[in-house]
């Protein structure tokens, strides 16, 4: 029995491993290899000539740099605006009672229950009449809408999780309502809020549907540029190099998240 079940487990495990290798590791590896390949002819398993030629070519293109700047500007703007709009709202949802609160909360969920693409198209049509299509503002707005749910639900949960007695204890030693928020509530909720901010940044950076429908043709983000290059260029390496470049911010985000969420702050935030 034990022998059998061990074998079965192994089979299952290997199956998953094969699946992962085939559908995730292999494509990613291929992209990486292409990014550093100067020549790669059909039967060869590895590139026939290695080098950084395409990196210098890609980095020399002005459209790459402008797309990079656009993407960073867009992500920063959306994250900042989202924080300004959503954090107070999240706090209100978590700590205050007002009529229509649950309806409001539900409406966010409902909006996300629709097929996203259809929603974006209808918004794009609306933006057309408002002259927002093809503008930075238009893309910012569509990305804000995209990240609203995340930036309200996560921080709301974070604020809710802050113990009432902790806040009352702060009042007790003389803190005003604002000081309670500043010195107790916010630091306690910080790890989760930081995670939500990071996710918003990363999500906005990589989002393509909304950016394309509302932003094209004038606003071009990094992922859009990459798609365009892969679709239009015969040279595979351009797309591959961009993919590897695009991989950098998400890696940075993950490392940051580990520092903020996995690190000391989190333990301390939870501790006690």
């Amino acid at each position: 029995m034990i022998f059998l079940s061990t074998r079965r487990f192994d089979f299952f495990g290997y199956g998953i491993l094969l699946f992962l290798i085939f559908f995730i590791v292999l494509p990613v590896l291929t992209v990486f290899l292409w990014a550093f390949a100067e020549q790669w002819f059909y039967p060869a398993v590895l590139p026939t000539k290695w080098g950084f030629r395409f990196w210098s070519l890609v980095l020399a293109r002005p459209d790459v740099w402008s797309a990079f700047v656009t993407s960073i500007e867009l992500s920063l703007t959306v994250t900042a605006l989202s924080a300004v709009i959503c954090l107070p709202a999240a706090y209100a949802f978590a700590r205050m009672d007002f009529p229509g609160k649950s309806v409001f909360m539900m409406s966010f969920l409902m909006a996300n229950a629709f097929p996203r693409f259809a929603l974006i198209i209808s918004i794009a049509v609306l933006f057309l009449s408002l002259d927002l299509v093809g503008t930075f503002t238009g893309v910012v707005i569509i990305q804000l809408l995209n990240t609203l749910l995340l930036m309200i639900w996560l921080p709301t949960a974070a604020f809710r999780a802050v113990s009432r007695e902790m806040e009352e204890a702060a009042r007790d030693v003389g803190a005003s309502a604002w000081q309670v928020f500043r010195y107790v509530t916010l630091p306690q909720a910080f790890p989760t809020i930081a995670a939500a901010l990071l996710m918003t940044f990363v999500w906005t950076f990589y989002e393509t549907e909304g950016a394309w429908l509302v932003g094209a043709p004038r606003i071009r983000t990094m992922p859009l540029l990459m798609m365009q290059m892969i679709n239009n260029q015969l040279v595979v390496q351009y797309g591959a190099v961009l993919s590897v470049m695009l991989w950098v911010p998400s890696l940075a985000a993950i490392l940051m998240a580990r520092r903020i969420i996995g690190g000391d702050t989190f333990a301390k935030g939870l501790g006690g």
Partner: peptide, 20 residues
Amino acid sequence: TPPEKRPTAMVFQSHALWGH
């Protein structure tokens, strides 16, 4: 009078220390 202006101090059952 709100608690921050009262000359009282409270020890809570859950201790309510600020973990951060």
